[in-house]
Write a protein that binds this DNA or RNA. Structure first.
Length: 575
RNA sequence: GCCCUCGUAGCUCAGUUGGAUAGAGCGACCCCCUCCUAAGGGGUAGGCCACAGGUUCGACUCCUGUCGAGGGCACCA
């Protein structure tokens, strides 16, 4: 048991078995490639690792799986860590490692501290991770919060596993929505000046619009706006309103502990001519033509009119239909700006991009990837992770959110009610592919239904024991001096195995972009600890055993803290 | 009509990317604090893994179809 450095033993075992497999297959004429993959059996009796290679080999060698397993065991040259092996069930090879490595692993956790589970990323591949990117037309709602929390945890996870992550927020500060925003604010500004005006349905109704209007009026005289022509007034107010909303969004994000390395403005892409340049480039490459798109199917489009458009041949690169880059009035579409944006990322040196989007943007993936393939030749870039919707309920009753009707629940409201840790942890407990039912009342409760308390409590409990030890004048022995082989109880062994599997879990989570695995892991780890705690008294037992158990607790606290840290959740010393 | 995601215990969800007896929490029922934090531990009950085929030594996992839920389908973002 020395694979606390992240799967070292597992690799050695796999290589050893692989050699044996190849030796066996030497004489087989039509042998197919068989690669050895070890798994960790769920059941203790099945050993530390299990191999299933004997089964697929059986047919090729025309022998039973158990016979094949025996041949393999005769051939294989195991590394020294292997204690013994078994053939079990239909033909599994179960590998049992030498015990007695407990001290090594616990010592390693303590000496590595926050670095336990991490690999060096100083030479790591740069990854551009774009997430949240909520429109700057209003505050963030809880749905945005899920993407924000997942994105931030993924950034931490990838950084921990060898990548260099650049966190980016794309500000959609161009287009008609900003016009609507500006107009809404202008109406409120007039209202505040006592000028009665009708408030159309198309305007944003939220109270925050009034706040923005007030803020603008304290900074600048109303008459100066009145004196402007329509276009420059809307432009100016739009810019001020976007700035105000972005300040609010950044503050909301800050409340959940999220910051970005870069905020990228869509507007600057238009202003700098990058969008135009992109269209020109595509034009020169013959990737644009004039054509007419068919009407959308299955969707009511009352104002559909066939029209000639400049279309990008994305179908040549895997898309379903060619996409317009310019609107009827000649201005660039959102899509045009978006591929200019991703192209810009590419030219900033990011060959690898990950975007986290809401599920309502699922239909958008193919066209962006197709466009990027056309522009850069990269396949499947950006890598898009879709986060499913958050369904809000209050005491089980569905709660419809609408920015238009002003009935949405903001992220900051929820954070204020529930707390940052609970919001972050709860959002991390499910796969992003599953829709999230978020009950506003349940999330407020500080009881067992809130898993965050279960895991934080585990950490606090350990700290309490360590405090108690200090109070009683017990000095913690140096890890080197501790005889950790005394940790032989079932609960202790289970806990050690959990600690040992942490780097492996992180690696899987990073490779599969599934930070929720961290949350699942912490819950299992906390359960293993609580069980240990209940069955194994620490303070008051015989000195040598007590020191061993204290060491185990210290290592457990460290891993809980590390894992929670990746999720952006605190590990309280007392609760 | 087409595309994407999902369907596992009464409820909310895991299931290590095809392995051995499908696991937690909540809810139900029953135990455990003279003892380091009971925000905890132990146990019982609860399953045709939506359904039907297929692939193979083996399928909750992969493929096809059906049913059901959510999202999306030009000139918005």
């Amino acid at each position: 048991m020395v694979d606390y450095d992240g799967g070292f033993v597992k690799q050695a075992l796999e290589m050893a078995l692989q050699c044996a497999v190849e030796t066996l297959l030497q004489d087989v004429p039509d042998a197919k490639q068989v690669s050895v993959k070890l798994s960790r059996p769920k059941i203790k009796e099945h050993g530390d690792y299990a191999a299933n290679v004997a089964m697929p080999l059986a047919a090729m060698l025309k022998k039973s799986p158990r016979q094949v397993a025996e041949l393999l065991l005769q051939t294989v040259q195991w590394p020294e860590q292997v204690e013994k092996t078994d053939i079990a069930g239909p033909g599994f090879i179960n590998i049992i490692l030498k015990v007695g490595g407990e001290t090594d692993i616990l010592k390693a956790i303590l000496s590595q501290g926050v670095a336990y589970g991490c690999v060096d990323n100083s030479q790591g591949a740069p990854v551009n991770l774009e997430f949240v990117s909520a429109n700057p037309t209003g505050p963030m709602h809880v749905g945005h919060g899920r993407g924000a929390v997942v994105g931030d945890a993924l950034a931490n996870l990838l950084n921990a596993r060898g990548y260099q992550v650049h966190k980016e927020y794309y500000i959609n500060d161009a287009g008609t929505q900003i016009g609507v925003l500006a107009n809404s604010v202008w109406l409120r500004m007039q209202e505040l000046q006592g000028i009665a005006s009708s408030f159309p349905d198309s305007a944003y109704p939220g109270d925050y619009i009034i706040e923005i209007a007030k803020e603008i009026l304290t900074g600048k005289d109303f008459d100066s706006f009145k004196a402007m022509d329509e276009a420059s007034r809307i432009n100016e107010i739009g810019a001020l309103a976007v700035a105000a909303n972005m300040a609010m969004i950044r503050s909301d994000l800050n409340d959940v502990g999220i910051t970005f390395d870069q905020y990228f403005s869509e507007k600057t892409l238009h202003e700098s001519g990058k969008v135009e340049q992109l269209i020109e480039t595509l034009e020169n490459d013959g990737l644009i033509y004039t054509g007419t798109l068919p009407p959308p199917k299955g969707k009511e489009v009352s104002d559909y009119k066939p029209m000639q458009q400049r279309l990008f041949r994305t179908t040549d690169f895997g898309d379903d239909v060619d996409r317009p880059l310019q609107k009827q009035d000649g201005t660039a579409t959102y899509f045009a700006a978006d591929i200019a944006y991703h192209d810009d990322k590419y030219h900033r040196g990011f060959k690898h991009m990950i975007d986290i989007w809401g599920a309502d943007h699922g239909g958008y993936i193919k066209r962006v990837q197709s466009a990027m393939k056309a522009l850069t030749g990269l396949e499947k870039q950006p890598e898009v992770l879709l986060v499913q919707m958050v369904n809000l309920t209050r005491d089980g009753v569905p709660f419809k959110m609408s920015k238009r009707a002003g009935t949405f629940v903001t992220l900051s409201e929820v954070v204020e009610e529930v707390g940052k840790d609970a919001v972050r942890f709860n959002f991390m407990t499910r796969r992003i592919e599953s829709q999230f039912d978020f009950d506003l009342e349940a999330a407020k409760q500080k009881d067992a239904e809130n898993p965050v308390y279960y895991v934080q409590y585990a950490h606090a409990r350990i700290c309490a024991v360590l405090r108690k030890a200090e109070e009683e004048g017990i000095s913690l022995q140096d890890a080197e001096a501790v005889n950790a082989s005394l940790l032989s109880s079932d609960e202790a062994q289970k806990l050690i195995k959990m600690l040992l599997s942490y780097p492996e879990m992180l690696d899987t989570a990073a490779q599969r972009r599934e930070p929720y695995r961290i949350a699942t892991y912490i819950m299992q780890l906390a359960a293993a600890f609580h069980s240990f705690y209940h069955h194994n008294r620490v303070i008051g037992v015989e000195e040598e055993l007590m020191q061993a158990r204290l060491l185990l607790l210290r290592a457990t606290a460290q891993v809980i803290k590390n894992a929670l840290g990746l999720l952006g959740v605190s590990a309280p010393k007392a609760m």
